[in-house]
Computed example of a mutant assay.
Amino acid sequence: MATEENVPIYAEIQRDVERKIMSGAWPPGHRVPSEAELVAQYGCSRMTANKAMSNLAASGMIVRRRRSGSFVGPPRVQEPLLRIQDIRAEILATGRSHRFKILRRNTRIASTQEDAAHVGVPVGTPILTLEIIHYADDEHFAVENRQINLAVVPEAAEESFKTIPPGTWLLQNVPWTEAEHAIRALPADRVTSQRLKIPFGDVCLSIARRTWKADRLVTFVRIIYPGDRHRFVARFTPSSSL
Rank of each mutant, 00 (worst) to 15 (best):
T129F: 12
I127N: 12
N106P: 00
T112G: 06
F100R: 01
I127M: 14
P80Q: 12
A93D: 14
R96E: 14
E79S: 14
Y135Q: 10
I87F: 06
E131A: 11
R105C: 01
P75V: 06
S111P: 01
T125L: 14
I133Y: 07
I91Y: 06
P126R: 08
R76A: 13
T129Q: 14
V119H: 07
G124W: 13
L92C: 00
T94A: 04
D115L: 09
R108P: 05
I91E: 03
T112S: 13
T112K: 07
T94D: 01
L128N: 08
H118N: 14
P80I: 06
F100G: 02
P80K: 10
I91M: 04
L130N: 09
G95D: 00
V72H: 02
L128I: 08
L81A: 15
P126Y: 10
R88L: 03
G73Y: 08
R99K: 05
H98K: 01
I132A: 01
R105E: 04
K101T: 09
E90N: 09
R105K: 11
L130W: 09
V72S: 01
T94G: 05
P122M: 04
I132H: 02
I84W: 02
A116Y: 05
L82Y: 14
I102Q: 04
A89S: 13
E79I: 07
